[in-house]
């Protein structure tokens, strides 16, 4: 019993140690930057992955010249045909608090994305766009295949209910009595 317990604890410790990178919150690493002029405000846009692929999450940083103090605004990301798009307030990046940013954010589809910034600050409101950000096709297996695998428990549950319905005979009077 003691030996078995020691073995189990050793295996658990090894598993935890081997998985240790999963414990740590990853630092924000910017591998590519672009510049945007939103009226009087210059912004450096940083990307945690480059090139970007659809559905693959990455860190975005938005660093206004002179710091973010006294400034606020929103950033809107969209595809030209309007099939995908989202808007976020310009807020502190959770793992890089000195700048605005989006943490582990994915863009839903491939194509030429546009990031539109609206910034309010001491020099009034400024608007600027970063257009033509290329997002490549999603990696991995086709989504239809993935969704089919995800639906297996539902099919299994449905099959179980069908078997139960067919095999268990409920007395007729119970089916109609209230």
């Amino acid at each position: 019993m003691k030996r078995a317990l020691t073995t189990v604890l050793s295996v658990a410790a090894l598993l935890l140690l081997s998985a240790s990178p999963s414990w740590a919150y990853e630092p924000v690493t910017i591998v590519h930057t672009e510049r945007v002029e939103a009226g009087p405000y210059g912004i450096t846009v940083g990307f945690g992955r480059w090139p970007i692929r659809a559905m693959q999450s990455l860190d975005f940083t938005f660093t206004p010249d002179g710091g973010r103090e006294g400034k606020s605004g929103v950033v809107e990301a969209s595809l030209p045909d309007g099939v995908a798009g989202e808007q976020w307030p310009l807020a502190r990046h959770p793992r890089k608090p000195e700048v605005w940013g989006l943490d582990i954010q994915a863009l839903g589809g491939d194509g030429q994305w546009t990031f539109r910034f609206t910034v309010d600050g001491p020099d009034g409101r400024g608007v600027g766009e970063l257009a033509g950000v290329t997002v490549l096709a999603q990696p991995g297996p086709p989504l239809a295949l993935s969704w089919s695998v995800a639906g297996i428990p539902l099919l299994a549950l449905f099959g179980f209910l069908v078997v139960a319905w067919r095999r268990v005979r409920v007395p007729r009077e119970q089916l109609t009595a209230v």
Partner: peptide, 25 residues
Amino acid sequence: WHGLYGFDATLNSPPHVGLLLGNVA
């Protein structure tokens, strides 16, 4: 999935839906 796509907080990914259906059962 997270190794391929990253740790995006997408609730409605196929593996998450599989996990949720497992919990329902």
